[in-house]
Design a protein around this nucleic acid. Structure first.
Lengths: 118, 118
DNA sequence: TGCAAGGCTGCACAGCTGAACAGGTATGGA
DNA sequence: TCCATACCTGTTCAGCTGTGCAGCCTTGCA
């Protein structure tokens, strides 16, 4: 297999076969970026707390999330805006209360890794 | 269950039981932070590429990683330094070549989620 | 009609981060 | 001995990110 792109073919390699394996493992740059973005959403303690709460406590209101996590309501709102834009959560309005829930399966699966044992 | 900390007990809640569920789901702040830090390591396309390569292509040299990912060797070295400090990878010197490998089980498990199907 | 609660937005600022550059050390071969 | 290779380090800098503040809109109740 010659997976090394033409523009890098001139560079020396130590273990040629490992380079090819690595290139195959990395795959499409846009797919890597998509996953990096997904991980990025989980990389902030505030957002991660919110996601964990949403993951376990079902549809829950913004101010309840603020009380549960100790964040200010504006910070919660800001974080939820980001997550909403990314398509990870969705909010449903009921009167003047908006209850959010998790709608992204792959993020939900990642969260399962860091749920405290009960 | 009264899981709401004293300093937030005065705040109003919409669904009290959901707040308690959420607090239980979030758990210890330091544990949340530890996971956020772990996700943070995966949130950069460069580092994620390196980790994917390490995950699939076993022990591999720095310059080979540079060729495989299209990054400059200093950037690879810099990223590996960060990962080494975090205890995610380890390098073994053999002559003037240093081969790195993944040594963190939980990161390795997370990576399995985003390996392209073969 | 007035008012408080719930939530959203724009803005400014401090802190962090990734990238590039210059230069350094150690190894191995000519 | 000289030099190229392989890798590491420190520094600088532009760009991003999370936070708090002020203020707004909508809803529900008195």
């Amino acid at each position: 297999m010659h997976l090394v792109p033409a523009e890098r073919a001139g560079q020396r390699t130590i273990d040629g076969h490992r380079v090819c394996d690595a290139i195959a493992a990395v795959g499409e740059p846009e797919r890597v970026r998509a996953w990096a973005d997904r991980f990025s959403l989980l990389s902030d303690p505030g957002r991660l707390s919110l996601l964990l709460a949403l993951h376990e406590a079902g549809p829950i209101a913004v101010s309840d999330l603020a009380v549960a996590t100790g964040m200010r309501d504006t910070a919660v709102s800001q974080a939820l805006r980001l997550l909403r834009t990314a398509g990870v959560v969705e909010g449903e309005k009921e009167g003047r209360v908006v209850r959010y829930r998790l709608v992204d399966a792959s993020v939900s699966e990642l969260l399962r890794h860091c749920v405290p044992p009960r």
